[in-house]
């Protein structure tokens, strides 16, 4: 459970640091005038969706950290046989990295108001990300064909579980991506909303890329 605990420690420390800054010197019973900025979170009054996204990322990280904790505990038992990951995963990883990069490029375009780049940027991102999910699915097929089923060994079980759970989270992101892309393609929605959507997507993509790299690294090293 050390993995989950370490992760929690980080989250709680971050939160606590911010709370401390807000609360440490306050003498709340003094009815003093307070500054205008003291009644919303650290990113400004209009960044609720960003806060919610960060919260969601904390929840998702907690979810994966706990699976990894279970992974580490289960690995210590006698019947664990390390599995060899399909080579295809490397290709998939590259796709996801490029997708993340493409989205970052799109975001920069949106920030600099280069509207013409949004459409190709978003489409490339989508295609590559879908390619990643498809690639993962093909990797599963390859494993099955070589007789490596989910029940073959706990290592396999965790492989399917981790990759599956990650793919589900990607698909969730693709739903939001689809909504943003639709707006861009149809030309509905104002520039600010679009920019915000793309920004949030970018953060989420980088996050899921990071999760994938951690998972992939762990799968490779064990």
């Amino acid at each position: 459970m050390t993995i989950a605990l370490g992760f929690l420690a980080i989250i709680l420390a971050t939160l606590l640091g911010w709370l401390l800054k807000q609360t440490f010197n306050a003498e709340p019973w003094e009815a003093a005038v307070v500054s205008d900025t003291a009644h919303y979170g650290p990113f400004g009054a209009d960044r609720s969706k960003l806060i919610a996204l960060l919260g969601l990322m904390a929840v998702v990280s907690s979810f994966f950290a706990l699976i990894l904790s279970a992974y580490a505990l289960r690995m210590e038992l006698g019947d664990w046989v390390p599995m060899t990951e399909p080579q295809l995963l490397w290709t998939n990883t590259v796709m996801l990295i490029v997708a993340s990069g493409a989205l970052q490029w799109t975001r920069n375009a949106a920030v600099n108001d280069q509207q013409g780049r949004l459409r190709p940027g978003l489409l490339i991102t989508g295609v590559l990300t879908l390619g990643f999910v498809l690639g993962q699915f093909i990797a599963w097929q390859q494993l099955q064909n070589s007789g490596q089923f989910i029940t073959s060994n706990p290592a396999n079980g965790f492989f399917y579980f981790l990759t599956g759970a990650h793919a589900v989270h990607i698909l969730g992101g693709l739903y939001v991506w689809a909504r943003a892309t639709l707006k861009v393609v149809l030309g509905t929605g104002d520039a600010t909303t679009t920019r915000r959507s793309i920004e949030l997507c970018t953060i989420y993509w980088h996050f899921l890329l990071l999760v994938w790299l951690v998972l992939f690294g762990l799968l490779l090293s064990t």
């Binding site: 609360t23 709340p28 307070v34 003291a38 009644h39 919303y40």
Partner: peptide
């Protein structure tokens, strides 16, 4: 975090 009214600090 985001929707407190003006003057409502965390410590209030």
């Amino acid at each position: 975090l985001q929707a407190r009214c003006k003057g409502m600090t965390l410590m209030r």
